[in-house]
Amino acid sequence: MAAFVLRRLVQAALVMAAVGLIAFALFRFVGDPVVFMLGQDATPAERAAMSAQLGLDQPFHVQYGRFVARAVQGDFGLSLRQLRPVSTLFAERLPATLELSLAAALFAVAVGIPMGVYTALKPRSWLSQAFLVVSLIGVSLPTFLIGILLILVFAVQLGWLPSFGRGDVVMLGGWSTGLLTVSGLKALILPSITLGLFQMTLIMRLTRSEMLEVLRADHIRFARARGLPDRLVHFRHALRNTLVPVITVAGLQLGSIVAFAIITETVFQWPGMGLLFIQSVMFADVPVMGAYLCLIALLFVIINLVVDLLYYAVDPRLRLDGAAAH
């Protein structure tokens, strides 16, 4: 177990080093931040001075070395646009993105799994057919379109929910949360549905196909032959066997929810990391972009690790402790 975790940590470190290098190298070609900061009319001398001040005149490997050394301490430098530390900007924006992503993931799992189970158990009911049609729409419509349609219906026409922003937030320590105010919760509904809809349909379809597969398994037939009631056969034996692969995918999807929050945050003007990233791209704010890429990579690495550990909890066959087969 310990060896397994250690091996995974080493792999994670290698992945992070590679991502850091790619991020750093790629963003050198995005554009010259000095031009953005000083404007078109600056003299070459002013530009050279600015470059020297930012360390941009140093050779590549020196810049990268500095970048890594500071990054591991959480220091990604100053935002070129706002001239404030990137870490401070992230700390301000992170709660908004995480709350949105978790709400979206919760929506995807809490709706997707029951729908998947239902469509597997009652494949011929009209409700199952309706779910499948809805899921097809969910998979094929692009996120921004879903967001705009939701805004059109629920914000513009019905006027039930706000169309942009987070509503009122409350500070809990350094964490700004929108979960404690009515306006914050109302503001969360449309963006989290928009963000989670694709994952929800994915989880539903996966749950359905896995469940159909499991229901054909020998041990399910044997459970029926033992006379177990459908309730136990379906929700104890079949569902638990179904959840093993679903957990993996759902967990990995959490990473992409955070990463793809960019679009939803832009549509809803949600003050999170994604919006910060888009604004930074327009300004060629290299430190923010690099830090964002590294953070997303870190997130994926952590989620992968957690999912592997969750496997251990759900599937006893993977527990390679002292009680191995004999």
Binding site: D218, H219, F222, A225, R226, H237, N241, V314, D315
Partner: peptide
């Protein structure tokens, strides 16, 4: 369903797959 297991028991061919691996 009530009769199965209670008055007629069943033994299946493949013991490797007849038991639920997660319980």
């Amino acid at each position: 369903r009530r009769l199965r297991g209670k008055r007629i028991g069943a033994i299946f061919q493949d013991p490797l797959t007849a038991l639920d691996p997660l319980f």
